[in-house]
């Protein structure tokens, strides 16, 4: 009997991950890298300045206008 497409897709991923050789090390690297990028850098070092300091598009536009008018 032919298996359901989702079952086949699941098995493809399951078998694929299980039979990885080089890939296991890569997955560790990917997870560590993504954790550093999104959980450390994005959260603590890279706030979106205009979105954190202002709560509406109008106030953001005003802030940018003020900055561009007053810059030396």
């Amino acid at each position: 009997m032919k298996k359901h497409i989702f079952k086949r897709a699941y098995e493809m991923y399951y078998d694929g991950f299980r039979s990885m050789t080089v890939g296991r090390k890569l997955w560790v690297l990917i997870i560590v890298k993504l954790a550093i990028i999104f959980l450390v850098l994005k959260l603590f070092f890279f706030p979106d300045i205009l979105h954190t300091e202002y709560d509406s598009d109008e106030s953001r536009a005003n802030a940018v206008r003020k900055s561009l008018i007053t810059q030396p």
């Binding site: 850098l41 070092f45 890279f46 300045i49 205009l50 940018v64 561009l68």
Partner: peptide, 16 residues
Amino acid sequence: ILEFEFGTNWSNYSWF
């Protein structure tokens, strides 16, 4: 990361 930098370091540019 380049997109993060747009929002943090280059906010005037990002909005403009």
